[in-house]
């Protein structure tokens, strides 16, 4: 196994979460014939090199009482989008902020920010604060509140060979 294979195997194993037990890396270490400390060191390396953006407890907002979430989409001039994106990301109420392509004519918005609140009104208040602080009142934008949640789970995007056979069935 190359280092790359080992890293790949580690990431594939971690994507569904650690086992909640005293020695969560023991089984993985056995499979890779490494020590638990070596596994931890590789994870640290993956963090340091930006393969892992954070490592810890991953929560579901709704179950924590944050019943409303809006994806607020903005139509920002192309030469302004980096600047505004950086400012939006600094707002404490914004949990995710991405630039994405416009798809004209059906989709004109190029900046996406996620805002959570205990209820709809709290989210609307947070949006109003942002509009005022960043002077965005006149910029075309709208909140898309979530209604039904059909699925929320970590996506499986690293396939180990056996998993590939089970989960991928492209027609």
């Amino acid at each position: 196994m190359t280092q790359n294979d080992i890293d790949h195997y580690i990431m594939a194993s971690l994507q569904e979460g650690l086992p909640i037990c005293s020695r969560p890396y023991a089984a993985l270490a056995r499979e890779l014939k490494l020590t638990e400390q070596q596994i931890v060191d590789r994870i640290q390396w993956l963090k340091d090199n930006d393969y892992i953006r954070r490592y810890g407890i991953i929560v579901r907002h709704k179950e924590l009482g944050f019943h409303a979430n809006a994806m607020v989409v903005w139509d920002i001039a192309d030469d302004q989008v980096t600047n505004i994106g950086n400012q939006l990301a600094l707002q404490s109420s914004v949990t995710l902020c991405y630039q994405r392509p416009r798809r004209l004519p059906e989709w004109r918005y190029n900046l996406f920010s996620m805002i959570h609140g205990h209820d709809r009104q709290e989210v609307l208040n947070k949006i109003e604060t942002i509009e005022q602080e960043l002077n965005l009142t006149d910029v075309p934008h709208k909140p898309l509140f979530s209604q039904r949640r059909f699925k929320q789970r970590g996506g499986r995007f690293i396939y180990v060979p056996e998993m590939e056979k089970q989960t991928i069935n492209y027609a």
Binding site: E16, I20, I57, I58
Partner: peptide, 30 residues
């Protein structure tokens, strides 16, 4: 351990582990 298991069973915690940088690890889209 028991508190984390309980939080997981109640759906408050989805998992304990990494959030990958999707640009470097695989691909993703909305």
């Amino acid at each position: 351990i028991s508190v984390l298991k309980s939080l997981t069973e109640r759906g408050i915690v989805s998992r304990v582990g990494p959030v990958f940088q999707h640009k470097k690890v695989g691909a993703s889209t909305l």
